[in-house]
Amino acid sequence: MMLPFVTVLLSAWFAWRGHRCASIGAWWLTLATFIAWCFYHMTDPMNLSL
């Protein structure tokens, strides 16, 4: 769960240091890990009844 925070910190650090492409690459990596965790944590049934 800490991985998206590591990659987003890297992305911010690259942006601050002036490496635009590296920053955007790290952002894509963050999005990929974000989606992976979404699948892990958001695919169990919800307690809803109609």
Binding site: M1, V8, R20, F34, H41
Partner: peptide
């Protein structure tokens, strides 16, 4: 875990804003 994902979402939003500021 979902709270942490929301925090990650805010952090990812911040990257776009930071890129606008820097570049």
């Amino acid at each position: 875990p979902l709270c942490l994902l929301q925090r990650a979402g805010f952090a990812m939003v911040g990257i776009g804003l930071l890129l606008n500021i820097r570049f």
